[in-house]
Every structure is written in C-alpha cells, then in structure tokens.
Design a protein around this nucleic acid. Sequence first.
RNA 1: GCGGGUGUAGCUCAGUGGUAGAGUGUCACCUUGCCAAGGUGAAUGUCGAGGGUUCGAAUCCCUUCACCCGCUCCA
Length: 517
Amino acid sequence: MSEVTASTPSPAAPKKMDDIVALCRRRGFIFQSSEIYGGINGFWDYGPLGTALKRNLKNAWWNDVVERELIGPDGNSVDIVGVDCTIIMNPKTWVASGHVGGFNDPMVDCRESKQRYRADHLAVLGSTAAGSRLYAFVENDDEQRAAAVKALTKYEKRDALDQAVHILRPFMTISAEERARTMGPHAKEAGTLTEPRQFNLMFETNCGAVKDESSLAYLRPETAQGIFTNFWNVCDSTRVKVPFGIAQIGKAFRNEVTPRNFTFRSREFEQMEIEFFIRPDTANEWYKWWRDWRFSWWQKIGLAGANLILREHDRDELAHYAKEGAGTSDIEYRFPFTAPGFGELEGIAHRADFDLKAHATHCGKGDKMRYFDQEKNDRYFPHVIEPSAGADRGTLALLCEAYTPDPTRASGVYMNFTPRMAPVKAGVFPLVNKDGLPEIAERLYRDLRRKHSIEFDEKQSIGKRYARMDEAGTPYCITIDHDGASSGTATIRHRDTQAQDRVALDQIPMWLDERVS
RNA sequence: GCGGGUGUAGCUCAGUGGUAGAGUGUCACCUUGCCAAGGUGAAUGUCGAGGGUUCGAAUCCCUUCACCCGCUCCA
C-alpha cells in the first residue's frame, strides 16, 4: 500500500451490518433470491426501493460518463460511446482473454498448511506396503522431490525399504484411501489434502440442443470482453478517434468459491465499465486523470466521508495484464464487514494493449487489426485505461453510508442518501385526512409525479409517515396543513435536520427540481 | 474449502418432549392533528428443509440448506 487518500480523518460511525441487512429486507431494498425455497448462495434480489436506488446509481454513471460533457486532461471533451453486449459470447473470446486455460484446473487444498496446489502438478511417492505413508510433491520442484524421497526413506524401516516396491504416480490417480495416508508437501501430518476440485470461476452452459463439448459456452465473467471484441465495429461505424472510450453496464457471472458479505461478493453481479482507448505514450496522464475523476465521482454521489479511499496497487499485486504500465488503483469503501479494512468498489487499471492484441492474434488477423491514426499517420494497438466499477457494490456502499442510527427519532434510524440517489424524492401528505387537505395534497402529488418519484400517504399519524420516509431515505416531506390550505402553501420537512420550510404550492415543483436533479 | 456461531410472525425475540407466544410493525375503523399518540378490531407461521427416535418433536439424533464471524479464495 503505497498511497492512501482519505477525504477527512473522522472515525467511522459504528454501524452493524446485521442492522443494515434487516432494514434492507424490512423496507424492501434487498431480498435473498428465491427465498421461499431457502435462498441460493451468492444471489440477491432488489426490492422496490433497492431497484430504484441501483437504477439511480447506474443512471448517474451513464449520464455522467456517456451523456454529459466531460473535459479531459488535454482540455478537450472526452468522447465516450455506449454498447450493450451479450452475456454469452463465442467461447474463443475467453481463450483469448485468458479466462479459459489458466483457471480451469483441478486444485488440491491442504487443510493443515493452507497451501493450494494444481492437482495435475502433484505426484506421490511411496511403497506398496499396506498402510504405509505416501508423500506428495510438486513434480517439477526438485527440492520437494528430494524432501519426499528423504522422508520416505526415513519413515520406512530398512528391511521394509528393501522389500517394498516403490511407486511414483500422479496425484490425480490415487484413491481416497491412499489420499488419507498421503503427506502434503508442506504438511506435518498425513491426510490433510482434499480431493482434487475444479475451480473454474466461469459458469458453463450449452448453446443449442446438443449438450457436448462443441456446444459448450460460458456466462461472461466480465463485461470488458464485449467491449474489446466490438472495438473494430465501433471504430468502423462511428467517427470516434483515439482517445475515446466505450462504456457498458451489464451483468457478469463468477462462480465464486465463497460468496460472502451480503451482496458484496455475489455470483451474479452488474458491472459499469469503461474501456478508454489511448495512444500508448499518453497512458500516464490518462491513467491519473481517470483515477482522480472516478474517485471524485463516488464522492459526489454520496460517499464523501473517510470511508472512501483511493489506493494505488503495489507492483506485486498487479494483474497479469498490468505488470508493466502506468499502474492500477482501487477505489475502496470501508464497509461495516471490512472495517477497519476496505473493500473494492472500482478498479482503475492500465491494461496496455493486452486485450486488443490478444483478440487480434486469436481471430487470426494479427497486425492487420492495428488502429490507424490518421493524424499521426501511425498504426498501433491502442492502450486501454479501464475504470471498472461494481453497480451492486456501489449500491451496497450507498446503503451502508446512508444508514444513520439516531435514537432521538421515532424510526431509530434514517437513510441520508443524496437527493440524486434517493429512491423516493419527496413524500406528499395531508396533515389530516379531512377538511379538503387530501384533495390539495393529491393535486400537488400528481403535479410533482410528472417528473419525479414521489410518494403520497394520507394514512395514520403524520409522525408515522415521516418515520417511514426516514427509513426509505426520502429527503423531503411536503405536508399540507390547515394554514397552508388557506394561504396556498405547504411545509417542507428536511430529512436530515427535521427542520421545516414553508413554501408556496406553485413554487414547490421548481423548489424540488433544483434540489433533486 | 476449513473452523466457529445462528435459523420460531415483516422485524426483535421468548418458548428444552405435551394446544405455537410476546413486543413491534402491517391493515381496517374511530378519535386526534407536525414527528412511529390513543382506542377497537383484523390478518400474518413450511418453528430453514428432509429424515430418524418417541404415544407425542420448535425442543433429542442424523443429513442438508441459508446467513453471520475468523481463515482461504477473489485471475
């Protein structure tokens, strides 16, 4: 960890994840997927309020990234176009990206040493004598092989050694009974190795009626490859010129070994990704600009406190595609379940030309697919700066950040979403359910609803209605009272302070527009 | 994947072998009228699931699922 940037040094509020999960369920933010059947590990559904919150987050991202003008480090407008690609792609995509191959292998865990080995790289050495110990070692590791031989000769009595027929076999071929008396390479006791297990993180499916090798397909484990494979299409069909970006919001799937921490590590999740294509010699300045702009964006939508940090990766934790280059950094949030540590919201990586080159090579056209830079009269594979954010993680961070315990108020808690992110922008209430107040309130409600998400409630006491809106995170509550009915005004209650303004009815639409847009 | 913990009403929980409960919330009506007020009434349970023991299981046993915590993993 070489660089940490925090906005303010204030300590994190003591929030309990269980309480946040309970509120999410109680108020309809997030439910367990297929809960009536006992749920399913790693999958979550959004309820009415959660769907609105997540949609607000995605809309804000799309709006700020693709639609609104953004000024880049060179003072020019940043050019970004959108795509929306399929979840299932030609399987060759995942060979080119490196997802098939490196992560498809059977692995063996050692319960004692906590080491993990490629099962097809392990071999065992031992004797055929009944019940004798076997010694596992990594085949191409001479040191381990020597250690295994030494351990074997030390373990077996000399006469047994003379008579015993020694075996040397791949670990993959031994039985469960033999495995139970096998010593792991780093273990002190026998029988600590698990059976070989596939750790393929990609979900598999079959495309077409026939289920065989030829129909095998994968659910995409990241949205990025849809962008890379469409790079040439976008160049040919639009008038984009490097530097430019392609943005996409979409679902991705990873068969995580251990889904954990509410929606933080789900097996089905949504990404908001930009692949920004640049000339290789401008990587540093674009990388820094994207990193800083993305950090300030998260702050702007409501993660402004000390719980948000920007963390530059150390060299040794860089991904295979980012070893050389401008760098990689994470925007991280201090979730209640990671505190005092942080969990990743977005990664900003300089992926160099790894992906475009890989696809050019695998599709067989190679250098012919280089980008032609008319201005410089130069051909090259553009480098890529990738800001890749998690929509579900972002939503979860907004929920955690907004959750504000307040024992002094009836609800005991309120959600202080920024108005732009709030699922409901305002509640409109008649103070009493008579004397013509409901009619006035309903007219105002219908007027405001033409542009915003508004809730109308005439039931029960006004305090109850305020309390419900506090838990939904609604920033404003507009109440028609008797004074207002006669003077053409209403009171507007501010969620965070509980203070009230009196505003003329005909001014309220504009008043609200200014604050929630 | 390993170890530990927890599953009973929307939520918080009580109930240790003998009729499934409380508070709170939700809904309706009355009343009141600016912060979950009061009154009356109502609805709501696969006691996580499956199996076993037993005359009888929310309760004991086995298996399994889900969630939480610590490891592991996170290309």
